[in-house]
Design a protein around this nucleic acid. Structure first.
Lengths: 184, 184
DNA sequence: ACTAATTTAGTACTTGGTACTAGAATGTGG
DNA sequence: CCACATTCTAGTACCAAGTACTAAATTAGT
């Protein structure tokens, strides 16, 4: 036996958790068992098939986008008007701060802004070419960062996206992103 | 004719925009045309099939901020001469890339560089004030990014740190960080 | 009326599955 | 060691929602 059933199943749960895009075939290969075994496992564990998982996620994010009223949304949600503007909210948790002083590491604010700048552009493969950013003031544990992004220049495959992140009415981060639609 | 082609197509674009979960069959029924017509329309308009649409949405929401939690240290610092220079290595793993195309998300490269720029400065509390960065070329899954940082300007409480990240001899990222020693 | 554009029909094939049956391999208890 | 149970594998038929392609029918425009 390669791995006990229980072992495999708990590994499986985790795998799907951290990458819901996996097909049974891929997991089967990873676990060195047949595809049927994986399917039996999914049945037992009540894990739906990949397409259902994705559909579920899509639904979730879709609903969220629909019902976005900035003050009630907590977490990592984004509202998007493709090629125009978007909003994302990030609440600073333990994971985001320097232990020593409870101040958010800059790259989390950057990540929020960068993700948003990329998400806003309506194309398959969008990458950041360059950015100029400013951390206006430190952000502390527990603060809720609301990033507003706006496309300010649109060329066939290049976009300039400005992002401003605020905590309440306090500007904390400012960035100008030059993103492009890549051909891959 | 029920509706002109153009009419139908623009209606179609809107339909899919406001409900990406629609199948061709459903839309065909709505428009009173055959399923093939809808498919031709999708081809012409470059609208992907339903499953792809959902996958795409799932990816966007998934990519969002999950990215932000796991690692305490981004990249491994392999050498450090305080207030002078440092090197850190980051190997791009599954966790760092867009599922779709295996290209690293920009904010990981940024995080590596930012962490290094902050680590290099010999003080208790160091924060980034601003940065100008350039993603020179996309980085793919499995590539090992080596970031070299150098302090190029030193004032009592302000430092300018230049970071260059390479894969082998290939420059992939460049950044100028303005960091400061905070009093807190 | 004739040609071009548009629409429909139909076939073969693909992905990532479900549902089900049956046999093989491996354990485990007596 | 045998018997039975658990676990795993294999294989078939089928489905949804497509792609890719060919060909015919319909409609529009002039």
């Amino acid at each position: 036996m390669r791995l006990s059933k229980k072992m495999r199943q708990s590994r499986l749960v985790q795998s799907f958790q951290e990458n819901p895009f996996l097909t049974d075939e891929e997991v089967a290969k990873q676990c060195q068992v047949s595809i049927q075994t994986i399917r039996l496992d999914r049945m037992e564990l009540g894990i739906p098939e990949m397409r259902e998982r994705l559909k579920h996620m899509a639904e979730k994010s879709f609903d969220e986008v629909r019902s976005l009223s900035p003050e009630e949304v907590i977490g990592e949600v984004v509202s998007l008007e493709l090629d125009q503007s978007g909003v994302s909210v990030l609440e600073i948790s333990e994971d985001h701060v320097f232990e020593r002083n409870q101040i958010a590491r800059g790259h989390y604010l950057f990540a929020q802004a960068n993700s948003l700048a990329v998400a806003i552009v309506n194309a398959d493969l969008v990458l950041t070419r360059s950015a100029a950013i400013r951390f206006v003031r430190p952000v502390k544990l527990g603060e809720k960062c609301i990033a507003h992004a706006k496309v300010v220049q649109k060329q066939p495959s290049r976009f300039q996206v400005d992002v401003e992140t605020k905590v309440l009415d306090d500007m904390v981060f400012q960035g100008v992103f030059d993103v492009y639609r890549a051909t891959n």
